[in-house]
Structure formats: structure tokens, C-alpha cells
């Protein structure tokens, strides 16, 4: 438990944070743009990992394997979108249904709960054995993806999706097929999440059917941490590309905090509890602040302050 051991662990947490940052951008699309908490991601991150590892170990080139993983995620999001829009299932429940089905699907893809992929045998894009290389690769992925998404959400189609998430009634009155927009957004989000899963699987050297458990919580934590920091730095007026970048930075900070509390001696089995508490606190604080500002108690304090003046 020396400072040196903490510092030694930090580069790995940056690498991990950047890889999970891609997933955080996916969560940003559903949670911040579409205003949907999409639970599919727990399944689609493992789906991306499973598809990529099985493809790579069966001799498919890395590039094609990455594309296959991304497409599988798009399909998973598409299913959630259809369950939600065409079949009228509430968004959270639609995500849970997809997530649960993906457990079986991922087991079928891999044939067992865990499949290894060795960096010694395959030219993997990232690996925990080469942290600096991983950090650079992950950063390149992030920059390219953010550039593409920034362009896409600036187009007519992207504006349509943003309007749907912002005000469904307005969007429909402007002739926007809001159901289609939700499906596109969910597919896009899960495509990114699966891409992230494919990279994470390569990084850790295996795909595991449980690798996505609690991923939504990490994603939400990253998005919220990123938002809080960007608001503190820029006072709300912030460019769309930066907002996505901060979601990814949020993931890096999340992993650095995790490394730190593990170093402090928190048992690793308590990590998920810790993550959930962090997310709950960050989600609750703005609500409670708003409630306090409009409460009777607050009005009373203002009143007394007024008298003293």
C-alpha cells in the first residue's frame, strides 16, 4: 500500500477508462440525447466481446471482427428499439428483456461462459500487456468516433434524433417519425457499446459472459461525472463534441477513483456497491438541490435574511 503502487496502477486505469469511455459515449446517446436509460448495454458489451473474440480466434481479421462486433451491437439496439416503439414496452423493461436474452445469445456464441484470445497468437489492437500502446489506440478510437458522431448529430437526421429526445410532441408536430428516431438512437448507442466490448475483451485477453454486468452503472457514472466536471469548468455553455469527450473523460476518472479506493483497501467485491452509491448520489444531488430551492424551509431562510438586511 505505497504511493508507488498507486502510481504504478494509474496508467492501467487510464487505459481501461478510455476503452470504457467508448461505451460511455454510447450511454450518453441514449441517456442524454434520447432521455432513455437503456439497460441493453450490459448485454451488448459482452455481445461485442463475444463476437470479436470468436471471430478473431476463428481466423477472421481484426478489422472485420471489429465491424462484426459493432454490427451485432446495432442489431441488439434495434431489437430493444422495436420492443419499445412497435410493441409498446416501457424503455427500461425493453432494455432488460434484450439484456437477459443476450446472456443466452452470448453463451451460444461462445459455447461456454469464457473464451480467451491471446495477444501472442493474434494481432490484437489493445492489450493490458502494453499499456502505452493501448492508451494511444483507445485515444485514436475516441477521437475518430467523437468526430463522426459530432458530424452525424449535426446533420438533418441527427437534429431529428436530438429533437425527439428533447420534446417528442414538438418533434411529431414538425413531421419527425419519433419512433424511428428512438430506434436509430438505440441501435447507434449499442453499436458503440459493442465496439467498446470488443476492445475491452482484447484488452483483458478474453470475453466473458458476465463482463457487462453493471456496465450501465459505469456508463451512467462516466456520463454524470463528465457532465459535472464540464459544467464546473465551462459554466454550461459547452460544445456537443466536448460533451461527448467529457463522458469519456468521466470514464477515465471513474477508473482512477476505483483504483484509488481499491488502493485504500476497499474489498473488490464491494466495488459494485460503491459504484451504485456514487451514481445514486450524483443523480440525486441535482434533484434535491432543485427541491431545496423551491422548498418552504428555504423560503423561510430567505425571508429572515431579508429582515436582517
Amino acid at each position: 500500500m505505497t504511493i508507488a503502487s498507486l502510481l504504478a496502477a494509474l496508467p492501467a486505469s487510464v487505459a481501461q477508462g478510455l476503452l470504457w469511455g467508448i461505451m460511455a459515449i454510447g450511454v450518453f446517446i441514449t441517456f442524454k440525447i434520447l432521455d432513455i436509460a437503456d439497460l441493453t448495454v450490459d448485454g451488448s458489451i459482452a455481445l461485442g466481446g463475444a463476437v470479436a473474440v470468436m471471430a478473431i480466434t476463428h481466423g477472421v481479421s481484426i478489422g472485420v471482427a471489429m465491424v462484426l462486433a459493432t454490427v451485432s451491437g446495432l442489431a441488439a439496439g434495434l431489437v430493444t428499439g422495436i420492443l419499445h416503439t412497435l410493441l409498446g414496452i416501457p424503455d427500461i423493461l425493453a432494455g432488460i428483456l434484450s439484456q437477459i436474452s443476450l446472456y443466452s445469445i452470448n453463451m451460444n456464441i461462445m459455447g461456454k461462459s469464457n473464451q480467451a484470445v491471446s495477444v501472442d497468437r493474434f494481432p490484437l489492437l489493445v492489450t493490458l500487456r502494453d499499456i502505452p500502446h493501448t492508451v494511444i489506440m483507445a485515444a485514436i478510437f475516441l477521437v475518430v468516433l467523437i468526430a463522426i458522431l459530432y458530424w452525424y448529430f449535426g446533420t438533418e437526421q441527427g437534429a431529428m434524433i436530438r429533437a425527439t429526445g428533447c420534446n417528442v410532441n414538438m418533434a411529431r408536430a414538425q413531421g419527425i417519425n419519433t419512433n424511428l428516431c428512438k430506434v436509430i438512437g438505440l441501435a447507434l448507442s449499442n453499436g458503440l457499446v459493442a465496439l467498446s466490448g470488443a476492445l475491452i475483451a482484447q484488452y483483458q485477453g478474453n470475453a466473458d459472459v458476465n463482463m457487462g454486468r453493471g456496465a450501465i452503472v459505469i456508463g451512467l457514472a462516466a456520463v454524470i461525472i463528465g457532465q459535472v466536471i464540464s459544467e464546473a469548468l465551462f459554466k454550461r455553455q459547452i460544445n456537443f463534441a466536448l460533451r461527448m469527450l467529457f463522458a469519456a473523460i468521466g470514464a477515465v476518472i471513474y477508473y482512477m477513483v476505483i483504483t484509488f479506493v481499491l488502493w485504500l483497501g476497499l474489498p473488490s467485491q464491494d466495488m459494485k456497491l460503491f459504484s451504485a452509491i456514487v451514481v445514486a448520489v450524483f443523480l440525486a444531488v441535482p434533484y434535491l438541490k432543485g427541491k431545496w430551492n423551491t422548498s418552504f424551509a428555504h423560503a423561510e431562510i430567505n425571508d429572515t435574511e431579508g429582515v436582517e438586511d
Binding site: T155, E156, Q157, G158, A159, M160, I176
Partner: peptide, 12 residues
Amino acid sequence: YRRGKSHGLRWS
């Protein structure tokens, strides 16, 4: 301004 028109991949 684009109400009722198709929304493509042009800048919005």
C-alpha cells in the same frame, strides 16, 4: 423549415 421533407445527411 424541413417539416414534411426527408431528413438526409446534409448539415442541418
